[in-house]
């Protein structure tokens, strides 16, 4: 950690830990949810396409 004295200084973000980590956290969670939702949508689309193709 370049200019952070310690890990705890890094995590406390100069007293703004809640705002900084919430911002990065909600961004990461949103991207993750989108990827998972798309994975489900894709497998459903493939399942239905296969069903239609093989009958």
């Amino acid at each position: 950690m370049m200019h952070w004295g310690s890990w705890s200084a890094f995590f406390s973000m100069g007293g703004y830990a809640f705002y900084v980590w919430f911002s990065f956290g909600i961004t990461a969670v949103s991207l993750f949810i989108e990827v998972i939702a798309l994975r489900n949508r894709r497998s459903e689309a493939i399942r239905l396409s296969r069903l239609l193709a093989q009958n």
Binding site: S49, R50, A53
Partner: peptide
Amino acid sequence: LERERSTEWVKNLFG
């Protein structure tokens, strides 16, 4: 896939 499910090429792809 959702829109072209019943077309020939999708059927060929998964058939």
